[in-house]
Every structure is written in structure tokens, then in C-alpha cells.
Design a protein around this nucleic acid. Structure first.
Lengths: 106, 106
DNA sequence: GAAATATACCTCGCGATATGATGTATATCA
DNA sequence: TGATATACATCATATCGCGAGGTATATTTC
């Protein structure tokens, strides 16, 4: 998929990946793979940004000798997802314009 | 609308704006206004990029004393629009994931 | 005819961002 | 013992939207 297009979806994707239950970096990448592929460097950058924006909170826990940072979505993070859903109608209208199905001749 | 989200749509929007007939900067902004608002600096940057990428060609013409640069879409530009249309299914699937309607419980 | 507004173009620099490359460390499996 | 999977992190680079600022002419308003 086009790079720029992906950009706009990533934040909401990552937030959605931890919406139902807390998760950690490595797992988020795996869970998102069927929808969007993203590298570790990309993910950790995004997680850092979302944390700074208070859209998620972090808790460190040990799991089988390895460290894990579990991310938990905040109310603000849920708000970000809602925002995306609200934008969707607009995006669909833009799509119809681009695809050339805006009620006129086609 | 979210900024990053918009980014991914702009190229295809601009190309769509000149798909049916050649157009020029000032008019493109007006035509796109109902769908996306973009500033002149943004548009001219995009036009330059699309020209460099051979997705459109340029022709200068005088109109009532003022200069106008008319942009014409190329085969490659049309290909770019097609690419966007192909990406759409993927985007819809991502939307369903984010909105939480992926066949599971909801 | 002066002032305001619309038309029409352009460039520069900033901040935001995705990503490849690179590094560290442990657990598991062949 | 070596390869692979798990798990984190940082840095440099390239791309991009956009505000600020600039130039110039045509049209409309007072």
C-alpha cells in the first residue's frame, strides 16, 4: 500500500491493537500484520509518541526472563479512535471523488 | 480531518481534479474545496512533485493578461489514481479493524 | 481614481513522521 | 553450538504539509 496513505492509519491501528487488552510491542506487530505491516523501529516510534500524547500508559513486567512493556489505552487514546471513525465519512466522500462516482455522469 | 490521514489522499485528489480536463493551480484549490482544503503552498509543492514524477505535464498560457500554468494528466498519473483505487479495499479492511467490526463479537 | 479584493504564481524553512540500519540481551530449538 | 525467535531501543535520512512571505495584474467597490 502507498506509504503516505498508511501514515494516516497507523496511530489508530496501534491504538486499536491494544483497545481490548493490554499488549506489548512485539505482539502488536504480529497482531497488526494481517492489516498493516510495520517495522519495529516504526512501532516503537509510534508508541513513544502516543505515550507522550497520553493516549496510552506503560507498565513494565517480566515474562520468562525477558522484559516486556505493556501498553494500556487511556480515555484520550479511545478518543483518538473515535476521531478516526468520525473522519471516515469524509474519507469515503473523498474516495468517491477520486474513484469518479460522485453522482454525476460516469 | 486528521493531518496525516489527509496526506495520503492529496496526490490522488489533485490528479483527480485534472483528470477530466486540464486545470491550473488556483482552480484546483477551488474545485477541491468541497472535499479537502489545501493551501497554495501545499498545492504548488504537490504539483511540482507530480510533475517531477511525470504524472502530469505543464503548459503555460496567457488568460486575460495573467499567466496560467495548465496541468495535464499523463498515463502515469492515471496509473497513480488506479493504484489508489486498488488500495481502497485494504483501507476498508483496516477501517473495519479500527472500528471494531471484523466479523467477531461486537 | 483610490482602495480593496480576487486572481495567479512562487520559495523558504519548520516540524512531523516512517523507516532502514544498527545495537543489546535472553530463551528456545535443531 | 549455532540459528532463530523474542523483546527492547536509538540514530540518521528522506519525505512531506504548510505557514509566512513575496510578486504582479484584473476587477470591483467606494
Amino acid at each position: 500500500m502507498d506509504n503516505q496513505l498508511k501514515r494516516g492509519l497507523l496511530d489508530a491501528c496501534v491504538l486499536s491493537a491494544i483497545r481490548n487488552e493490554d499488549s506489548y510491542g512485539y505482539k502488536i506487530i504480529k497482531d497488526l500484520k494481517p492489516y498493516v505491516e510495520l517495522s519495529e523501529s516504526t512501532l516503537y516510534t509510534i508508541l513513544k509518541r502516543l505515550e507522550d500524547a497520553k493516549m496510552l500508559s506503560v507498565r513494565t513486567a517480566e515474562h520468562q526472563g525477558r522484559l516486556r512493556k505493556y501498553y494500556h489505552i487511556t480515555a484520550k487514546g479511545i478518543g483518538r479512535i473515535d476521531e478516526f471513525r468520525n473522519d471516515w465519512k469524509e474519507i469515503e466522500s473523498i474516495y468517491r471523488f477520486i474513484a469518479g462516482e460522485d453522482g454525476s455522469d460516469e
